[in-house]
Nucleic acid binder design. Structure first.
Lengths: 255, 255
DNA sequence: TGACTTATATGCATCTTGGATATATACTTC
DNA sequence: GAAGTATATATCCAAGATGCATATAAGTCA
């Protein structure tokens, strides 16, 4: 899916200074879809482009894959450096106390014209991050609400004032693939817990699944399925709040 | 997963003629896992390498992504040119008479040392092909039986005389990912029909699922699920053979 | 304390699944 | 052509999963 945009003379000149045919090899980047949950809404972290093409458009955080790093490492680096998650990201889940970021390869996008400058192949990743770990850095990095029009494969994004934006490159398509992936994954994993604090109640987990899937779930069967899956363990602790306090659960990472 | 192999002096010299640091950009290839079914066994099409490294090792058919072709196109080209499927492959399923080849992107492998010459990122695809479409071309292209040791992530390959081989590069790992993908996919699609002729009986389809999943399935519930899915349509024709002839079904591509 | 709110437990009708059995329809053999 | 054999399809039922209603438990707040 190629977006046709109007190009300014300045941008035209910039583009013409590239000579795509001079390179046999494509550039390879990683782009990371960072999903989080705020106020019952699924949101994605986007960065504002400071270069042509798509100057001032919002885009997925991304970067070139360096010579000596693996794709997973490149994605983790982007998460740390470009997305303001310094110190939080580790692919390995070594520490039992930390709540590491879930990061998984999504799909590789390689349409020859997806970047007007030159051939760029992008290996897309997606990450699930607890909202409290994200700090929006001023005008450059922000969270956007996601909406998927009925039946459409692409995704629409809105800022906190409900203003709609277009994304750079094929990034709306990448977001669409990410949403479809995570929705599919929910049917066989309680992956939603990656968006919650380390301890959470079953109701919270159900709410996460409901916002991602965009539909109500049956409370009892959700409880039963989750407990029967054996992937959650009770901590013995209780939440506090209105009404009877609920048991706090934790994901069994060791299994 | 990097394979450490013994290198001959000839190969050593060959490798040292490469200067990896001279290139900022990685090379990008596509490798295609071509799966088929012969005599109730799942098999993969492999090609014998005629160059260093891994000279004379069997490997997945693959090739560099050309400047102006998409990844899907590159994979289809490899399928046509390198795998002896000339004239059979089309991503678009335009023709109702032809039985097109199922081709889907699998995963992208980018460990910096997966190719000892230089940085090569491989976008892996997998294809499901009806056995009758494949012609093994002498010593260069052959089908190998696959076996997955219990719990192992990798895959072992055997030729028709049950001799075991090691694969080039990380291709055994790629095969493992392909098998896991197709097994997972069977739980929510009747994808096995891609390995059968256009018309097939439910029993044949069940046999396909059973060989891929490596376990017996319940006949009645398999029938019910398949028919209830609405993805198969009866042709009205019957197979011929021993016992009561079974209805021949066809996959509903138009839905 | 009593009203309120939410979690957890229990009971039950309905749907799905696994498994057995019965019936149908071809081919093969005598 | 009748009997036998093999396999497909239909029917039935028990066990399990799921959706839904109701009852009970355990906190907070006035």
């Amino acid at each position: 899916m190629i977006h046709l945009i109007h190009r300014s003379p300045e941008e035209q000149q910039y583009l013409s200074s590239y000579d795509p045919s001079a390179f046999d090899r494509p550039s390879v980047t990683v782009d990371v879809v960072i999903l989080t949950l705020r106020e019952g809404q699924l949101e994605a972290l986007l960065v504002k482009r400071k270069e042509h093409p798509y100057l001032n458009y919002w885009s997925l955080p991304g970067g070139f894959v360096l010579t000596h790093e693996s794709l997973d490492e490149a994605a983790a680096r982007v998460l740390r450096q470009k997305a303001g998650l310094e110190g939080m990201v580790g692919m390995e889940r070594e520490s039992p106390h930390k709540h590491p970021v879930y990061l998984e390869q999504l799909y590789t996008f390689g349409d020859p014209r997806r970047d007007p400058r030159m051939r760029v192949i992008s290996v897309a990743y997606y990450a699930l991050v607890e909202a409290s770990h994200i700090r929006e850095a001023g005008e450059e990095i922000a969270l956007f609400k996601l909406r998927t029009p009925e039946g459409a494969s692409s995704v629409e994004i809105f800022d906190s004032k409900n203003k709609k934006y277009s994304l750079a490159f094929d990034h709306a398509e990448i977001l669409g693939v990410a949403l479809r992936r995570i929705r599919g994954k929910l049917s066989y994993t309680p992956i939603g817990f990656e968006l919650l604090p380390e301890r959470f109640t079953l109701r919270q987990l159900q709410a996460v699944h409901e916002t991602i899937l965009q539909k109500k779930l049956n409370k009892d069967s959700f409880r039963r399925k989750m407990l029967a899956s054996g992937m959650l363990e009770a901590t013995g602790e209780l939440e506090r709040g209105l009404g009877r306090p609920a048991e706090l659960y934790r994901f069994r990472r060791e299994v």
